[in-house]
Write a protein that binds this DNA or RNA. Structure first.
Length: 530
RNA sequence: GCGGGUGUGGUUCAAUGGUAGAACGUGGGCUUCCCAAGCCUGAGACGAGGGUUCGAUUCCCUUCACCCGCGCCA
């Protein structure tokens, strides 16, 4: 992957974030703590805007998605079922000679990096003792620390959605296909936090689990599973969509979202994971990448996860995770026998393969798979899932680096000066409008400006500033990414009667100015920041 | 975790074995002030902990953080 790295640009962004109050090192007065970052006043607003836009588009503006806010600490069995306990606990061995790090249980199968003819166990390099390499943050529930009450801080928000699937289904009056959305903190004890906030140990995710019918059910109901035709957004969801079209749909929806908050497609890349890169349960995964100054890196992954997660929880919790589908039941009885048999067999084989892979013994796997396929014929199945999973903090960093621009201007005296402008999309900008009296020592101007400020602050996030020259205040707002400034001058007070109660609106990106009546200000702004 | 680099006001940088300067920013003031104008004035720093030394921001050790590379990244 050819990448143009711009370390200078990244340094400037980091220092701007500190200087203007977007991002601070966590616990800085104690020397900081690796992998943890705080959001300052502007960063907090920016992040809030992004999360609210996501939430609103995902849940409130859709009929088919319900929200959830689950706890960070959950029953430890959840992480057993999800696979995190096992995969995060691999004992690792370091080779002091070649500096390699290997899973302790695989040293007999991995070639030594320095002498590929020999396996790691056979080479002469000095090895460390195996050490547990756990990327989940562990804690204890209750006052006594013992093996019995170990709990984990969630390494992803998704599992809570699966765990609460049934409750949400029953209380939200949704039917498959439908989704459950959640925004929240997650924690991973990363080996190496890197690249500013990009890889942090405490971070926030915006995740949707979108539950769909298995393709066999879609085919039974619609006669066939629709094929994806052509590039781009496949349009409004159709009953005939199988997992592939739903997957494509969500990839395009997510790209639209990024465009809508100011990340054009040219700043993004799609990466379709190759079959050998896929997690064992995934049928397809698309990463949406952003061209960061330190390289092109993942913002969001959209995975087609089959029915793996709900199946795991059904097995581990011993609680049924299947749903009953009236349409399927009705459709099934009308199918010709050979179609029924073919669908039964396909569903059976998929279930059987999953069960065997999960370590279920051959006899129960055979029985369970038969039972699952019989259930399909009665209208019951475990939904499959499409998972668009986005990192909030990565997105914030992408928005800041993308918005960052420098403008060098030379004045009459030949003195040149470089100013920073953060060209945020108005929808995400932390401050939407600044209200500025032209002068601060004229009580009438200040009073009028305060009035305008009070008028606007309940509508959009508004900032009042009367310190320094007007040009300095414009520059200050440019650096904060404020898209609009409202200036109250003597004409507002009626120096020219025809301009009484009008103000100057100044645009961030081109310094353009226009005159608007105060009465229309709020509506004018709302139109542009929503 | 390994190797290399860097830590001085908010930011960007100076200087120094005798406890630190600047620019910008920031607080207050003056100015009919529309793109970081000017003037007056204030606050503000040697990442942390040890050691050597009469004395350490400076030398040494440890530690923490950040950056680059490697490894790891369900």
């Amino acid at each position: 992957m050819a990448e143009s790295k711009q370390p200078d640009r990244m340094e400037k962004v980091v220092s701007l974030c500190k200087r203007r109050g977007f991002v601070f090192p966590s616990s800085e007065i104690y020397g900081g703590i690796n992998g943890f970052w705080d959001y300052g006043p502007l960063g907090a607003e920016l992040k809030r805007n992004v999360k609210e836009l996501w939430w609103s588009e995902m849940t409130r503006l859709r009929d088919d998605v319900a929200g959830l806010e689950a706890t960070i600490i959950m029953h430890p069995q959840i992480w057993k079922a999800s696979g995190h306990v096992d995969t995060f606990s691999d004992p690792m061995i370091d080779c002091k000679t070649c500096k390699g790090r290997f899973r302790a249980d695989q040293t007999g199968e991995i070639p030594c990096p320095q002498r590929p003819s020999k396996m790691v166990t056979e080479c002469a390099g000095e090895k460390t003792q195996p050490r547990p390499f756990n990327l989940m943050f562990k804690t204890h529930c209750g006052p006594v620390e013992s093996e019995d009450n170990v709990c984990y801080l969630r390494p992803e928000t998704a599992q809570a959605i699966f765990a609460q699937f049934k409750n949400v289904l029953e209380t939200s009056r949704q039917k498959v296909p439908f989704g459950i959305a959640q925004v929240g903190k997650a924690f991973r004890n990363e080996v190496t936090p890197r690249n500013f906030t990009f890889r942090s140990r405490e971070f926030e995710q915006m995740e949707l689990e979108y539950f769909i019918k298995p393709d066999e059910a879609v085919e039974a109901i619609s006669g066939s599973v629709a094929e994806a035709t052509g590039e781009g957004h496949p349009g409004e969801p159709q009953p005939s969509w199988g997992w592939q079209l739903w997957h494509k749909y969500w990839v395009e929806e997510r790209l639209r979202f990024y465009e809508g908050i100011g990340l054009p497609r040219t700043s993004l890349e799609e990466y379709w994971q190759k079959p050998e890169e896929l997690a064992h349960y995934a049928r397809a995964t698309v990463d949406i990448l952003f061209k960061f100054p330190f390289g092109t890196q993942e913002l969001e992954g959209i995975a087609a996860r089959s029915d793996f997660d709900l199946s795991q929880h059904e097995r581990h919790a011993g609680k049924p995770m299947g749903v009953f589908d009236d349409d399927l039941r009705a459709a099934w009885t009308r199918l010709p026998k050979e179609t029924q048999d073919a669908l039964w067999k396909r569903y059976h084989d998929a279930r059987h393969k999953y069960l065997i892979k999960s370590g279920v013994d051959a006899e129960s796997a055979a029985a369970t798979a038969r039972n699952d396929a019989d259930n399909l014929a009665k209208g019951k199945y475990i939904p499959h899932v499409i998972e668009p999973s986005a990192g909030v903090d990565r997105l914030i960093l992408a928005l800041i680096t993308h918005a960052f621009s420098e403008v060098t201007e030379t004045d009459d005296k030949g003195k040149s000066e470089t100013r920073v402008i953060l060209r945020f999309h108005p929808r995400v900008a932390p401050i939407k409008v600044a209200v500025l009296p032209l002068l601060k020592n004229k009580p009438e101007l200040v009073a009028k400006a305060r009035g305008v400020f009070e008028l606007l602050r309940g509508q959009v996030n508004t900032y009042y500033d009367d310190s320094g020259s007007i040009g300095r205040r414009y520059a200050r707002q440019d650096e904060a990414g404020t898209p609009f400034c409202v200036t109250v001058d003597f004409e507002t007070l009626g120096e020219k009667p025809e301009l009484l109660d009008t103000v100057t609106i100044r645009h961030r990106d081109d310094a353009r100015q226009e005159r608007l009546p105060i009465t229309g200000l709020a509506a004018w702004l709302l139109e542009r920041v929503r």
